[in-house]
Amino acid sequence: MGHGGNVIAELTTDHREVDELFAKIEAQPVGDTQRRKLVDELTIELVRHSVAEEMHLYPAVRDHVEGGDGLADKELSEHAEVERHLKDLERLSADDPEFDHLVAKLKLEVSAHVRDEEGRLFPLLAAACTPQALDELGDKIRSAKKTASTRPHPSAPDTPPGNKLLGPGAGLVDRARDMLTGRGRS
């Protein structure tokens, strides 16, 4: 959940963990219940990551990167699409015919999003911010992931101040539900 380092190192490590989860899902036989458990784990990681980016990364992009409003809006739009897919996946069992189709679609969208962030957004942010600012942003991202939601909430606000006010409450409820159901425990 928290890896240390500046914001770029933190989020890049998250990206690699998501890649590994997709690989684990694909390694399981079609219809296997382990696929459902791994998708739940993937959902938790993607939602935490997205919430943290929406709370801290994209506002920093808006503030520091030339053309940052357009970049942040594009990223938020991609997050919304991923969150809708995660919400759709949440209701499906691993043996549902739509399950594998949605996982494949999700992987394509997440992979494209990651390539864009790592290839374009992160270098622009690194050029626009001091190392100290990037480190502070990494700390904020790690802190946000600790209280973030673990389930998709497509209709929740994804920009400040709404996401900063409502997000921790949704996160608390999600983590309580996860504890009661055992969701996210391998």
Rank of each mutant, 00 (worst) to 15 (best):
A94G: 03
E83H: 10
L124I: 01
P161S: 08
H113R: 10
D158F: 02
E78I: 11
Q132I: 03
H64E: 14
A72L: 06
P97W: 05
G70F: 07
D73E: 15
L172D: 06
R175H: 05
C129R: 05
D139M: 11
D135Y: 05
D69L: 13
S93R: 12
F99H: 07
P152E: 09
A170W: 11
D178V: 13
H79V: 10
V103A: 04
D135A: 09
T150N: 10
P157D: 04
K74R: 14
G171N: 08
L108K: 11
G162Q: 06
K105C: 00
K146T: 11
S111F: 03
E117L: 03
N163R: 00
S111T: 06
E78M: 10
G119N: 02
G119M: 02
V65T: 11
V82K: 12
L108C: 07
K107F: 06
H101I: 14
K107R: 14
I141V: 15
R151K: 15
S155K: 15
K146D: 07
T147S: 14
C129S: 07
D174V: 12
D158V: 06
R177Y: 04
P160M: 05
A80F: 02
A176F: 10
H85K: 13
H113Q: 05
L57T: 10
K107Q: 14
D178Y: 08
D69P: 11
A72G: 08
G169E: 01
R62P: 05
P152S: 13
T159N: 04
L137F: 01
E98T: 12
K107G: 02
D88E: 15
P161F: 10
A176H: 07
S149Q: 15
K74L: 15
E109G: 14
V61L: 08
V103R: 04
H79P: 12
K146H: 02
V173I: 14
G169S: 12
